[in-house]
Design a binder for these strands. Structure first.
Lengths: 108, 108
DNA sequence: ACCAAGTACCTTGCATAGCAAAGTACCTTT
DNA sequence: AAAGGTACTTTGCTATGCAAGGTACTTGGT
């Protein structure tokens, strides 16, 4: 990993059910993860091209049509893989932090 | 954050006491964080140029001299800032994961 | 005294994530 | 039909991470 935490979060949001870009931005913002359109749209296009996402156009009653995204089967598998990568990374960083604290203690 | 988790980990390792590149690689590897020379050396140079690190040459009894790195005061401050950024990020991602689990439950 | 092997540091070039900013298109309201 | 809001897109820049190859110093074997 290292790269792609945003990607991971976006796949998570989509895995909860059909959403379009503004829904995603709202859900990510509510988890205090800041994303802007210029990051999100190219990312969605990339994930679609990689076969992890699919979408359908849906008419809106108040504005232009929206792209509603869903995960493909491949996307679900990929999300699971990313989750285990994330958990490993988080555990590793936690280990680094703990060890520094331990070192600071023994140096007193 | 998003970018720079490696940077964070390396600053942590250096904060524990003077180390040279191979020490860092060893400590990072023992936390299951894989880094290679081609990543580490340019990063150290960058952090040095940014004023976060300083180093001194030390003769080795078994090979060429080594660069032992230490954090500058600015480096310590920066490390603290990164740590709080990391903790925020980890909490946010955890929130995303929990919410997906909650959504999966209620959809049964 | 010399050459091979080991250790340590450095450089180049590439792929790609994230982002700012500007752009296109559609729909509703007045 | 003009204005404003919503939604999706594109372009160009910066910087991280990495593979691969390179330089230089030291030790050890013969």
């Amino acid at each position: 990993m290292r790269k792609g935490i945003l990607e991971f979060c976006i796949l998570h949001v989509i895995s909860r059910g059909e959403v379009y870009a503004s829904d995603m931005l709202e859900q990510l913002t509510s988890a205090r993860i800041m994303v802007v359109e210029g990051t999100l749209y190219p990312l969605l296009t990339r994930l679609k091209n990689a076969g992890l996402l699919d979408y359908k156009w849906v008419e809106s009653s108040s504005g232009p049509p929206r792209k509603y995204y869903v995960l493909t089967d491949e996307g679900r598998q990929f999300l699971e893989a990313m989750q285990s990568t994330w958990l490993d990374l988080a555990a590793s960083v936690q280990m680094i932090i703990k060890k520094t604290e331990a070192t600071a203690d023994t140096s007193k």
